[in-house]
Amino acid sequence: MGVAGATAGCATAAGRQSVAAPHQVHDGLMTFIGSYTSSQPAGRGVDIAMRDMNGLLAPSGTLDGVADASFFAWSPDHKFLYATNEQEQGTITAIDVSTHEPRVINTAPSGGNSPTHLSVHPSGEFLFTANYGDGTVTAHRRNPDGSIGENTALVKHPGTEPHAHQVVVDPSGKWVVAVDLGAESVFVYAFDAGKLTQHQQLTLPAGTGPRHLVFKGTTAYLLAELNSTITVLAWDPKTGNLTAGQVISSRAPEAGGENAPAEIAISRDGQFVYASNRGDDTIATFGVENGSLVFQAVTPTGGNWPRHFALDPEETSLFVANQRAGTVTRLARDTNTGALTPTPDSYACPSVAVITFHG
């Protein structure tokens, strides 16, 4: 399964200004955009675009054979990309991107229902998947050729309606951490020889709805979908324990109405945290001061329902996947202040879910 021709309907907006970058810019950076093929309007699964030196995305092709691509994860060497196929009979797909002709290697059962997130162990030997539909987390072995191998572990979260939304490896590589929206909990697993053993269940207040977290050293920032908050968690990699601390709203002080945050990310220098607000349709910016978050601003995404976003490798732009608008929009980023500024740049992809960069 190879790259098909560039798909009609993917377009970029004109009338934009270039953004100066203090670091080397990757001209023609390969970019992967996942979308829901089962939604209306139907997405294409995996679009391939090229990002130019000014941050503009241009369509390059569509990868055949990847259904409902809702999240991506890279191998440590960035030669292989993995995608969740968010369907009732969940699967995950391995993609070889070691050449300029990406190709599907294989697709394997995710071990659960409706996978929404996956990550690769820093060793490159294992792949972890969170299955939202049935609240399970699985581990698969990665084969030397990048393909998905045997399932080595499957754990099911407790509760009446668990919904595992994310699974990541802590910075030490010793622990696997899963965020469960339905169980209102973050689970910490000891990981050894392909097996997962529950070590801690950190339970959040009812109505929190934890969705995604991001680590930075011995701190993690946990974004909640149901009550629009970020909880700052202290992380002890020696004991494998999380401790909840500061709780701050993900929204502007004056915001009202329904809102469902989706994604959270931190700048490489650890000074700024970003969160997407579906409903407000904004990206919130927070400064990090003495381990605490300080609200700075919200920036309109220029679209509807920002399910995911990603900083580019230079961190001079933040690209937002606006699911209901069917657009990827670009916000310019000041690397010194962390501030975001809307641009007219827009790349059209129906039912878009996720974006990632090869660099």
Rank of each mutant, 00 (worst) to 15 (best):
R251V: 11
V176F: 08
G303P: 07
A164E: 00
E150H: 09
P342I: 05
R44H: 14
P205I: 04
A178G: 07
M30D: 14
G245K: 09
H121G: 05
G326P: 04
D96V: 10
V232R: 00
I105M: 08
A14I: 15
P22K: 11
R103Y: 11
T197C: 09
N277Y: 04
S172G: 13
N85V: 03
A252I: 12
K156D: 12
P237Q: 10
S60D: 14
R142M: 15
A130T: 05
M53G: 13
G43M: 07
G90W: 02
F128V: 03
D192K: 14
D236T: 02
A108F: 09
R44M: 15
T138M: 09
V3F: 10
T343E: 10
I105F: 02
E161L: 14
T301N: 04
L293M: 11
H100C: 15
E263T: 05
K216T: 12
K195F: 11
A8E: 13
Y274I: 11
Q40M: 13
F71W: 14
A6F: 10
G270W: 08
G5A: 15
L154T: 14
Q24H: 12
L318G: 05
I355F: 07
S267N: 11
I148D: 01
C349I: 15
H163L: 09
K174V: 14
V247E: 10
D236N: 14
P342W: 10
G194K: 01
P158A: 11
A220Q: 00
T329M: 04
H140Q: 05
G359R: 09
P158I: 10
G34T: 11
T91G: 02
S185C: 11
T31S: 05
K174M: 14
G9D: 10
F71M: 10
T316R: 09
K79P: 07
R278G: 08
R333G: 05
G159V: 13
Q271L: 12
K195G: 06
Q200I: 13
S123C: 04
E225N: 08
P144S: 12
T62P: 00
P158Y: 09
N143A: 09
L340T: 06
L340D: 03
